[in-house]
Design a protein around this nucleic acid. Structure first.
Length: 429
RNA sequence: GGAGAGUUGCCAGAGCGGUUGAAUGGGACGGUCUCGAAAACCGUUGUCCUCUUACGGGGACCCAGGGUUCGAAUCCCUGACUCUCCGCCA
């Protein structure tokens, strides 16, 4: 959520910022409501001040056994007037809040301005595209060939987009998840959190999914709960409504969860195999940090995610999202795109974002700084990583001419432990 | 799902419908004392909104939302959450 006072004092800056994000929020509407609210509030406060004073007089008069009839009558009038004012103020505040909750974050200065992903900026790449002396297969063929998933039965029991991992495929995914979590804990010092997959409306609002994106999420009507689209939601909101000590910062958390996305309206788009799913698994990093250093931390977290891809020996590139491709709450985002040689495309496996104080204002996550002042923290998160597309990249990168898939070096210890075997191929012999 | 108890400031914990933003204790911070520390003593210890160039005012907030009243932390209603007991159950 943007700061109302900031909008009031920097209206033009906000107009320009929102325009960069292709947003149609009307700043003038917000300012008009704000102006009106303050006017009514002023009258209300003055009435209230008089009421407080006279109420004390009445108490005094009654104590002395006097008659306060005329004062009581006057106060009745003011009381009624204030009830009306309170209603008006409350209506305005509700409207104002709705407008503010629907206004996206403003892109950071360093973000390239552009209407969509074609304006994203290449930042760097690591490794280079692998070449084969045979025609590489794509994920779908490799999955079938090695019997790693049963997509048809997934569709039968739930619907398309709900994958069923089988045998070696299930173990490979589980090895991948364990590897990633362990790596972030040991190498980067994150604290693992196990969190609920269902959260309430307030929590979904805190990180910015609600009210705008309600249709993108699965909802349990009976209890008014939402299935989380990412661990970012429960993990970031863990500290909602709290005032932390600056000594507690930074808070570094990593969490592995199922993620649920309705992906409404995206049918037919990249939906083959594991590319776009309604349910998938993801390891997510979340940090709550001091506002002064959040952009340094953004670089650091991007690196944290990159190291996973490096460890897995996968070629990838880092893209900086343009203003128009930025998500609702983000001020700046790096996407990590892994090369899938069989599919012949770069696939997004991680999105690392700095939300500045946008989420902190909504979720009300604050800290007491060294100077004693209470301030909003900055929140960041990044996938580290989403498994399905990482899975695709591994299959396609480590394939051999006979369709078998070698294990990346770092997964071997996990594989050995899980299968009790020392075959370095993704297969159960 | 049924029955009951509770929700007050950083924490614990008082609080007759009328100087209660809130007793008291603890903690934290500052000061006196000390070579330093402990102890003791003194002081400080909120968030948000708003008016004002400023000094400084005013208002709201005792789980949330309604209601009663001239006036509500205190009375009434609804909801959320926590705890205890019963039932059901991985």
């Amino acid at each position: 959520m943007l700061d109302l006072k900031f909008i009031r004092e920097n209206a033009d800056f906000v107009r320009i910022g929102l325009a960069k994000k292709n947003d149609k929020v009307n700043v003038d509407d917000i300012l008009a409501l704000d102006e009106n609210r303050r006017k009514l509030q002023f009258t209300f406060d003055n009435n209230k001040a008089q009421q407080n004073k006279v109420s004390k007089d009445i108490a005094q008069i009654k104590k002395e056994g006097g008659n306060a009839e005329n004062l009581l009558h006057d106060m009745q009038v003011i009381s009624d007037q204030n009830k009306e004012l309170a209603n008006q103020i409350s209506d305005i505040e509700k409207n104002l809040e709705q407008l503010l909750l629907r206004a996206p974050n403003i892109p950071h200065d360093s973000v390239p301005v552009g209407k969509d992903e074609t304006f994203n900026k290449f930042v760097r790449e690591c490794g280079k595209a692998i070449t084969f002396d045979f025609e590489p297969k794509d994920q779908v063929s490799l999955i079938e060939h090695n019997n790693l998933l049963d997509l048809n039965r997934g569709a039968k029991i739930s619907g398309s987009g709900f994958p069923v991992y089988c045998g070696a495929g299930a173990i490979l995914e589980r090895a991948l998840i364990n590897f990633m979590i362990d790596f972030h804990i040991r190498k980067h010092g994150y604290r693992e959190m196990g969190v609920p997959a269902l959260v309430n409306r307030k929590t979904m609002t805190g990180t910015g999914q609600l009210p705008k994106l309600e249709n993108d999420m699965y909802h349990v009507d009976e209890d008014d709960l939402f299935l989380i689209p990412t661990a970012e939601v429960p993990v970031t909101n863990l500290y909602a409504d709290e005032i932390l000590s600056h000594a507690n910062l930074p808070i570094k958390m990593v969490s592995y969860t199922n993620c649920f996305r309705r992906e409404a309206g995206s049918y037919g788009k990249d939906t083959r195999g594991l590319q776009r799913l309604h349910q998938f698994n993801k390891v997510e990093m979340v940090r709550l940090v001091h506002p002064d250093i959040s952009y340094e931390i953004l670089e650091e977290m991007t690196n944290d995610a990159e190291e996973i891809l490096q460890a897995l020996g996968l070629h990838y590139r880092v893209m900086m999202l343009s203003s128009g491709d930025l998500s609702f709450a983000s001020a700046k985002t790096y996407d990590l795109e892994v090369w899938a040689p069989g599919t012949g495309k770069y696939l997004e496996v991680s999105s690392v974002s700095n939300f500045e104080d946008f989420q902190a204002r909504r979720a009300y996550i604050r800290f007491r700084d060294a100077d004693g002042k209470v301030k909003f923290v900055h929140t960041l998160n990044g996938s580290g990583l989403a498994t399905p597309r990482t899975f695709i990249a591994i299959l396609e990168t480590y394939q051999e001419s006979d369709g078998r898939i070698r294990l990346p070096e770092v997964l071997k210890p996990y594989w050995a432990l899980m299968t009790g075997k020392s075959s370095w191929y993704v297969e159960l012999t």
